[in-house]
Design a protein around this nucleic acid. Structure first.
Length: 564
RNA sequence: GCACUCGUAGCUCAGCUGGAUAGAGCAUCUGAUUGCGGUUCAGAAGGUCACAGGUUCGAAUCCUGUCGAGUGUACCA
């Protein structure tokens, strides 16, 4: 349920009745529970414009607002704050809706088509930690958009083109190795090829020739190339499956697939006067900047930018996307700013299409340096995932006895969940300090805390057996605050949707789980002496809470456990 | 040089479409509780929101400048 927009509507009507056109109609959360549930601070801003006393405006407005059945209490405080308290019956009634599978969240009225471009590994190498954030954040956003009703196209823009493949083919040719045997360890193969490339000028030359051969469609080269890609994709799929990320073969839209279009793109850019020649290269210049976007090199080769422009045109014009999200490292923000602007200039995307660079910071170790292995190498993603599961195993087996099978399953869910949650719970734009201990802690804003809260509720519900689905009665502050938080789920998801910020959801989850723990501590459910009426009411409230937790975690790509 | 991002408690982070006494967790200290799963709950202490100006009735939040950190900056992706 959207609470804020309902309140905003009432505000709008009230202003209409008073013949005032306000600048802002946004209610905000009450800054303190004592103030009520929501507050409106616009009266102060209006005072000057209307040349009236802010408190008087607030009082007039409050009188109008009071007419609505939504509110139990409307109070004017201080210089002109309007504090709003929702009626308990309104909360109870809507809580009933939170008992369904979507935790009461409705679908968007105007769904759109969205492309989320994420993960985008390079095909010559194994996936490493550098791919983690894009993969996790992108998958979460895709889940969120989908949950709210948008038609989501997940795209994995894999790097399967360029000199690196010439290198690989040349190395392969030189060694005449059996493809399966050698490719089983792709990383080693790539390293060896790279070493040869750096050491031998002759080899490098050969590699470049192979690139040309490959691009001109030489069959032998193509066969080898596609074998490399297959192998590499298999490895990626293994990572995605372990992570529980919803990427598969169908999401792959490779760089090379835009190949045939690149020449046309440049021609079109030129004919529209968007691109022009400079120092032998085809460039797009922007006002107020000396750095052009190069779309074709002196030697005629195309670049990353060219492919990106082709991709935008494809996504907007062929797929019909109204929002395109690029979940890519913050270091490329200038690149995307230029590419987006170029796409606008060229008319590949008009202003109704939202092009967004979902930028994120780097992953750092505890001392604030880039995250590396002990000997300074890049950390392979698959190893990181395995370590997360192993560490989870240790943490949970400290607390409880499990059968082997159970331990494996729980460690899997907790380990992966923690890895994801730790990343998603901080503002994506800042750098992220990776810390195993913090990640797998049960205290604080962690996956384990949420999963535990869920399991705990589940255990209560199981113990209670069958009970009647009914509107919970909110008898005290804690129940009320919990109910309010449960109902704020949709507003929260919408905000996260708008800003493409997963941490808005984790913050919500943490507040929700904390409130539940408090409620649970003070309001016994199954203890002796609790009357039937209260028990059923609290069971329903607990159920609604569990639903909200589950829905939120699932959007983050994190599973819940019935038992920990 | 220029551009972008960031600077909030000892540490890790929220809060940033301007609002009432700047919030959490960890760590530290104190207490409850023999517990409907204690991997719990409550409380204390900890802040010139980098600094300096400006706008405003009102600034952590907006603007300008300074300092500090990171990143990017013509033919890689």
């Amino acid at each position: 349920m959207q609470i804020k927009s309902q309140i905003n509507n009432i505000l709008e009507e009230s202003f209409k009745a008073l013949n005032i056109t306000p600048k802002s109609l946004q209610v905000s959360d009450a800054t303190k529970p004592e103030f009520g549930d929501y507050q409106y601070n616009g009266a102060m801003a209006l005072a000057k414009e209307l040349k009236q006393n802010p408190r008087e405006i607030a009082i007039k407005l409050a009188n109008e607002l009071e007419k609505s059945e939504l509110f139990e209490k409307v109070e004017v405080a201080g210089p002109g704050f309007i504090n709003l308290t929702l009626s308990s019956s309104f909360l109870s009634k809507n809580l009933l809706k939170s008992l369904d599978e979507r935790a009461g969240v409705s679908l968007k009225e105007n769904p759109i088509k969205v492309v989320v471009d994420y993960s985008s590994p390079n095909m010559a190498k194994q996936m490493h930690v550098g791919h983690l954030r894009s993969t996790i954040i992108g998958d979460t956003l895709a889940n969120l958009f989908e949950f709210l009703g948008d038609e989501v196209i997940r795209q994995n823009h894999i790097g399967d083109w360029g000199t690196q493949f010439g290198m690989l083919i040349a190395y392969f040719e030189e060694n005449q190795k059996d493809i399966d045997a050698k490719l089983s360890d792709l990383e080693e193969f790539y390293k060896a090829a790279k070493k040869r490339f750096d050491e031998s000028e002759e080899f490098a030359k050969k590699a470049r020739e192979y690139v040309v051969k490959l691009q001109s469609g030489d069959e032998g080269c193509l066969r080898l190339w596609s074998a490399f890609i297959d192998k590499s994709l298999q490895h990626c799929q293994e990572v995605y499956d372990k992570l529980g990320v919803k990427l598969d073969k169908n999401c792959v839209k490779s760089e090379s697939s835009y190949n045939d279009d690149l020449g046309n793109i440049v021609t079109e850019l030129e004919s529209k006067g968007v691109a022009k020649e400079s120092q032998g290269a085809k460039c797009i210049f922007f006002e107020g900047s000396d750095n052009p976007l190069i779309v074709q090199k002196q030697d005629g080769g195309f670049l990353y930018a060219t492919t990106d422009l082709a991709a935008i045109r494809y996504r907007v014009q062929e797929l019909g996307a109204k929002r395109v999200c690029y979940v890519v490292d913050a270091r490329q923000s200038e690149h995307f700013r230029q590419v987006f602007e170029a796409a606008r200039l060229a008319g590949f995307a008009d202003e109704r299409v939202l092009l967004e660079h979902i930028a994120f910071g780097m992953m750092l170790d505890k001392s604030g340096k880039p995250f590396k292995t002990r000997d300074g190498g890049t950390v392979k993603l698959i190893d990181l995932i395995d370590e997360a599961v192993n560490r989870a195993k240790e943490v949970i087996s400290r607390a409880n006895e499990y059968s082997q099978e159970e331990l494996e399953k729980i460690a899997q869910v907790v380990g992966i969940g923690s890895l994801k949650y730790a990343d998603l719970s901080i503002n994506r734009q800042s750098n992220y300090i990776f810390d195993w201990d913090k990640m797998l802690s049960l205290d604080g804003n962690t996956a384990l805390y949420m999963q535990y809260a869920y399991a705990r509720i589940n255990s209560i519900l199981n113990k209670a057996g069958e009970f009647e689905t009914r509107e919970p009665k909110l008898t005290d502050t804690l129940e009320r605050r919990l109910a309010l938080k449960v109902l704020a789920l949709e507003d929260t998801l919408l905000k996260a949707y708008q800003e493409a910020m997963p941490h808005i959801i984790t913050n919500y989850l943490y507040e929700l789980a904390t409130l539940f723990m408090k409620f649970y501590e003070n309001n016994p459910i199954l203890k002796e002496g609790v009357d039937e009426e209260t028990k059923i009411s609290r069971l329903n409230l607990a159920k609604a809470t569990a639903n909200a937790i589950k829905v939120s975690l699932n959007i983050l790509g994190i599973e819940v456990l019935e038992r920990i």
